[in-house]
């Protein structure tokens, strides 16, 4: 099976995630789009790992690290979203201009 199939799938998922980050206003939806992009990267890593056979074990190790870091990112991101909602009664990221000069 050509490895390019998996790379095209990963490019598609990444582009969908980019669209979501650019076009969504709800903070949680932006976080979901970021998850899509991280998964696209993971599919690439595992596909290359399978292509390399026994030498490709580090690809799967890196995929596991990406999953762990994504879990940490979601935890902190949701805590920030909850705090912003509590203070401003809104999760609209276009209104979060507090730190903008």
């Amino acid at each position: 099976m050509p490895v390019a199939y998996f790379l095209v799938l990963s490019a598609l998922l990444f582009s969908i995630g980019v669209y979501g980050v650019l076009a969504r206003q709800h903070a949680v939806l932006v976080l979901l789009s970021v998850e899509l992009m991280l998964n696209a990267a993971n599919i690439n890593l595992v596909a290359f790992s399978a292509m390399l056979g026994e030498a490709g074990v580090p690809g799967q190790v890196f995929a596991l690290f990406v999953i762990a870091v994504a879990a940490a990112e979601v935890g902190v991101g949701l805590a920030i979203v909850i705090l912003i909602y509590r203070n401003r009664r809104s999760v609209d990221i276009d209104e979060m201009s507090l730190m903008k000069w």
């Binding site: 050509p2 490895v3 390019a4 998996f6 596909a47 399978a50 292509m51 056979g53």
Partner: peptide
């Protein structure tokens, strides 16, 4: 990656 196959 044209022609690179994953051999199962």
């Amino acid at each position: 990656f044209e022609g690179q196959e994953i051999d199962f």
